[in-house]
């Protein structure tokens, strides 16, 4: 599998560390979030068949976290963006 790192170019997946689903949103820092919401955030993950946005860390490259869109059925990688950009966009969205 090849991942197009926005900083380093296309690289083999062996250079990256996999973290998991980029979907779950962490409960707000300092908030009064219930235990069940935390449990869901920390432990529960969907297992979709098809395109999936997930976090990968370019450990042997630029050491940046990326959001990679990968098809879990075919391993086709549709794209990769810096996680920070995605996070800022999401926090700006209503």
């Amino acid at each position: 599998m090849r991942i197009p790192c926005p900083h380093c170019g296309e690289r083999g997946f062996q250079e990256f560390a996999y973290y998991g689903d980029a979907g779950p949103k962490r409960p707000a820092h300092g908030g009064d979030t219930g235990e069940d919401v935390w449990f869901d955030y920390v432990y529960l993950r969907d297992n979709p068949a098809g395109p999936h946005e997930e976090l990968w860390y370019h450990a042997a490259g630029c050491r940046t976290w990326l959001v990679v869109t990968r098809n879990t059925l075919t391993h086709e990688v549709a794209g990769a963006r810096p996680a920070r950009d995605v996070a800022l966009e999401r926090s700006a969205a209503p």
Partner: peptide, 15 residues
């Protein structure tokens, strides 16, 4: 730990 801090900085609290 470095990887964890980077995740915190870039993904959890990018601002």
């Amino acid at each position: 730990v470095l990887q964890h801090l980077a995740l915190c900085r870039e993904w959890l609290w990018p601002s």
